[in-house]
């Protein structure tokens, strides 16, 4: 088996440094391919990538802006909410204070009224007591006269009469003062 490196009429040498035209044509082909690929492939795709990159960055920037805006709105809302709560608390506390004041007034008025009523009642009781005492006094005097006339069966002189009545009343009064109240 022979390995032959042929360089016939119709072929170039296997390692042919005189093949300048192939070299020149390769340059031309490389240049043409470079220009065409650069213009219609690389530039187009790089433009597309760049466009997309810009768009993505733009989208992110817009999202960030929207977030910042939302945060600002939320802060405003929170501040408003806090203000509203404070206001509500103030309203409630004012209402409670007013209610307390009113309550106190009502209670004190009621107390005063009650005290007046009690005082009126006590005065009336005292008057009634005096009246009762006087009535009892009169009843006892007449009863004593009757009892005395029946026991003695004789008329006593008006002087004796008067004296006896007074004496009895005084005794009853003394008795009454010791006990502090009337015995029915």
């Amino acid at each position: 088996m022979n390995l032959l490196f042929l360089s016939e009429e119709a072929t170039r040498g296997v390692v042919d440094l005189t093949d300048v035209w192939s070299l020149v044509f390769t340059w031309c082909n490389l240049l043409i391919l470079y220009i065409v690929l650069k213009k219609f492939f690389f530039n187009k795709i790089n433009d597309m990538l760049e466009k997309r990159k810009t768009e993505v960055e733009d989208t992110y920037r817009r999202a960030d802006e929207a977030e910042a805006e939302a945060n600002a709105i939320k802060e405003q809302y929170d501040a408003k909410m806090a203000g509203a709560q404070a206001e509500a608390e103030e309203i409630v506390s004012n209402a409670v204070k007013a209610a307390r004041t009113k309550e106190n007034t009502i209670v004190s008025e009621a107390k005063a009224k009650a005290a007046a009523t009690i005082a009126g009642a006590e005065a009336k009781i005292e008057i009634d007591r005096q009246k009762a005492i006087n009535e009892v006094k009169e009843d006892i005097s007449s009863m004593a006269v009757e009892i005395a006339s029946k026991v003695i069966e004789r008329d006593i002189g008006p002087e004796d009469h008067e004296r006896l009545i007074d004496k009895l009343i005084d005794e009853l009064s003394a008795d009454n003062d010791v006990h502090g109240e009337v015995k029915a």
Binding site: N2, L3, R12, V14
Partner: peptide, 11 residues
Amino acid sequence: MDINIQGPKIL
């Protein structure tokens, strides 16, 4: 048997 290694053909 020969194995020929040729340069590029001139078309």
